[in-house]
């Protein structure tokens, strides 16, 4: 019977409204925890101070937005940090694909499985744990200095965690250490989907392994790579929070403070709520604008939207 009237079983109206009634508590949760906070944006237009209600606060219009846009020092610095992290992120974005291709070249199944299993693991521990691991290894009395000194490679202990100039590349390396294995899974899945006959045909035509990779594997992975790249455009100003938050210290603060950390410091540490909200809103608008740009690009390049 379902083939005659697919899905259009006439049900009593009462029963249909039951569905809505059952969904109501969950929709209420979404309303309370995702939509109501949007009203918090109004704080940006007032000179809100803790302890005084918003109604009694002074209306200041777009003062806080202007304040951030005309700030020569901090705004310039945190935007620079954010952009540097984002750009280095694009620079290293082919690494998961390269890692997957290399892994695919390993014909020894157990070795391949072991490398994949181990390298995916760091993705599942928190940044607090990663920080603790790195602190244990790289701090002045850590095992890194022990080993390097014993080998005579360095004469006095170093501490990369308290090195202002090392921030950008060290944090990028850490990000790769944590995420490379996990990010490569999507490429491994894509490689598994490539038609094996193409490789056989190429081999018969005398292609070397390297040529097969260059002319079959990489072109087959390009669509995946481009989708991920386009998706990441929307996140240009969201370079991550936890990582930089835990690794921030007095020495590295100036270079590691990205936009999100700055909002946290202004809003929650200094309790300058209105200013923090204003910066957060501008960030959201930039994100949404970038998402639309990425979506338009995607429609042009691939003919389908990503959102």
């Amino acid at each position: 019977m379902s083939s005659v009237t697919p899905n259009i079983q006439i049900k009593p109206r009462k029963k249909q409204y039951q569905l809505l009634l059952m969904a109501a508590p969950f929709l209420l949760l979404v309303l309370l925890f995702s939509y109501v906070p949007l009203f918090g944006w109004s704080f940006s237009l007032f000179n809100y101070r803790p302890g005084i209600s918003l109604l009694e606060s002074k209306f200041v219009g777009f003062k806080y937005f202007q304040m951030f846009l005309t700030d020569k020092y901090d705004m310039y610095r945190v935007m620079k940090n954010t952009v540097i992290f984002a750009l280095i992120g694009y620079l290293v974005s082919p690494l998961p694909m390269i890692f997957a291709i290399m892994l695919n070249e390993v014909k020894h199944a157990k070795y391949k499985k072991a490398v994949q299993t181990i390298s995916t693991m760091p993705n599942f521990v928190s940044w607090v744990i990663v920080y603790s691991l790195m602190f244990t290894i790289f701090s002045t009395d850590g095992v890194f200095n022990d080993i390097m000194m014993n080998l005579g490679l360095i004469s006095s202990p170093t501490n990369v965690l308290a090195d202002k100039d090392a921030v950008y590349w060290f944090q990028t390396l850490l990000g790769q250490w944590k995420n490379l294995g996990w990010s490569s899974i999507i490429y491994l899945a894509a490689i598994a989907g490539i038609d094996q006959e193409m490789y056989e045909a190429a081999s018969i035509d005398g292609a070397t392994r390297f040529q097969s990779i260059l002319h079959i594997t990489i072109p087959s992975l390009m669509p995946t790579f481009i989708v991920l790249l386009l998706l990441s455009i929307g996140n240009f100003v969201n370079v991550g929070f936890d990582q930089y938050f835990v690794f921030k210290n007095n020495v590295t603060a100036a270079n590691i403070e990205v936009l999100d950390l700055y909002v946290y410091r202004i809003g929650l540490m200094n309790s300058d709520y209105s200013y923090g909200v204003a910066i957060g809103i501008m960030k959201s608008f930039v994100s949404i604008a970038l998402l639309f740009i990425a979506n338009t690009l995607s429609k042009k390049v691939r003919g389908t939207s990503i959102v």
Binding site: S34, V36, P37, L38, F39, G40, W41, F43, D260, V263, Y264, G267, L268, Y273, G276, V277, G280, I281, K283, S284, I288, L291, V307
Partner: peptide, 8 residues
């Protein structure tokens, strides 16, 4: 895609 953000 849309959230209030940290402080709101």
């Amino acid at each position: 895609y849309v959230s209030g953000g940290l402080i709101p």
